[in-house]
């Protein structure tokens, strides 16, 4: 399988402060990737770098199209943030939020066509939120909001899906339903990168795992197949950091 992106000796941080040092990884098309680490370990920093909103302090990030040619950025990227990062005072309905995922397809249009509306309702149906489309976002529970953000991430049929703690705030049933949606999308060939602190999700589904761990002042990323990196040493380190 061809790579979708590659990190070559990439160090990440802000100003002169290095958060993640010398990251080497390659993600192949269609893979299911798990990223796990303690709070503040640099998971969000890595996501920002994948998205392209944070330039490396050193090293190189290369993105590829499906022909294997180097490109400036991943063309169709679905991103699901943690709901706590959003300002819920915005006067937006569930429909409005999911429609944001269609903005690139809408181009300069400020109104939605019937195909945009259909895509939004289909995405909401996939996460079982179709009855909530006209609700204001502040009227939703944390778990419901996460599902709406998941609908927004998948409404544009992305080639790469980035999920930041997707089951945060959900009860067991809703978590399982959300993970089933992710698994379905993965089966359709979509590359999935999931950031979570729930090791079970990673152990069950991921084909490659990145574990953030600290050596002294610096954080490194250990990258490999689950059986290679989910060793008792790393797991103990995670438990003590949490």
């Amino acid at each position: 399988m061809s790579d979708i992106f590659k990190f070559n000796n990439v160090s990440l941080g802000y100003g002169s402060h290095v958060i993640l040092k010398e990251v080497n990884l390659n993600v192949e098309r269609g893979q299911y990737i798990g990223l796990v680490g303690a709070n503040g370990a640099g998971k969000s920093t890595l996501l920002k770098a994948i998205i392209g909103s944070l330039k490396p302090l050193s090293g190189e990030i290369t993105y590829f199209d499906d022909q294997g040619n180097s490109v400036k950025r991943i063309a169709k990227l679905g991103y699901m943030p943690q709901h706590q990062s959003l300002e819920l005072l915005f006067p937006l309905s569930v429909f409005d939020v999911v429609l944001m995922g269609r903005y690139p397809q809408m181009g300069w249009r400020i109104w939605s066509h019937s195909q945009d509306k259909e895509a939004v309702y289909q995405a909401l149906e996939r996460v079982k939120m179709q009855d909530f489309s006209s609700r204001h976002i502040s009227e939703l529970s944390g778990g419901q909001l996460q599902r709406v953000l998941m609908a927004r991430a998948i409404v544009s049929e992305p080639e790469l899906l980035l999920l930041d703690e997707p089951t945060n705030g959900m009860d067991l049933g809703a978590s399982q339903e959300t993970l089933n949606v992710v698994n379905d999308l993965h089966k359709q060939g979509i590359t999935v990168i999931i950031v979570t602190h729930i090791l079970e999700i990673i152990a069950k589904n991921a084909q490659k795992v990145g574990i953030f761990h600290q050596k002294g002042e610096e954080t490194f990323l250990t990258w490999g197949a689950p059986h290679e990196v989910l060793t008792s040493n790393y797991l103990d380190e995670l438990k003590t950091k949490k």
Partner: peptide
Amino acid sequence: NIFFYKEFLLTSFDPMMAQALGYNV
């Protein structure tokens, strides 16, 4: 503000998502 309503809204509400969709925040 009317013509760029979508861009102003998305980059204000969720800058990271905007970046992911290719907008220059």
